Simulated assay, not measured.
Amino acid sequence: MGKELHMHTPATLWLTGLSASGKTTLAHALADAFIANGMCCEILDGDVIRRELSQDLGFSKADRSENIRRVAKRCREINDAGLWAIAALISPYRNDRALARATIGTTRFLEIYLSTSLAVCEARDPKGLYRRARAGEIANFTGINDPYEAPQQPDLQLDGEALTQEACVASIMALLQQRQQIDEQGS
Rank of each mutant, 00 (worst) to 15 (best):
R108K: 10
N67L: 01
D63L: 00
L44M: 13
A31V: 00
I68S: 05
R74Y: 13
N37F: 07
G105W: 08
A31N: 12
V48M: 05
N37W: 07
L18A: 03
P92T: 12
I90N: 10
I35P: 11
P92L: 05
T103F: 06
T24E: 08
N67A: 01
A85M: 13
G46I: 04
G105P: 03
I78H: 01
G58W: 08
T16R: 10
Y93D: 07
T107V: 14
D47K: 00
A27F: 03
I78G: 08
R97F: 00
R94M: 01
V71I: 09
L26E: 05
R50E: 01
G82W: 10
T24F: 09
R50T: 00
Q55S: 15
Y113M: 06
G82E: 03
L89W: 02
D47R: 04
M39A: 09
H8N: 15
N37A: 02
I78R: 03
G17L: 06
R51E: 14
G82T: 14
N67V: 01
L18Y: 09
N67Y: 00
G105N: 11
L53T: 10
E66A: 07
I90C: 13
T116H: 02
A98T: 10
I49S: 08
I112N: 02
E66P: 15
A102D: 14
E66I: 09
R94N: 11
K61Y: 04
G38R: 15
G58T: 08
T106Y: 14
R94I: 00
G46S: 06
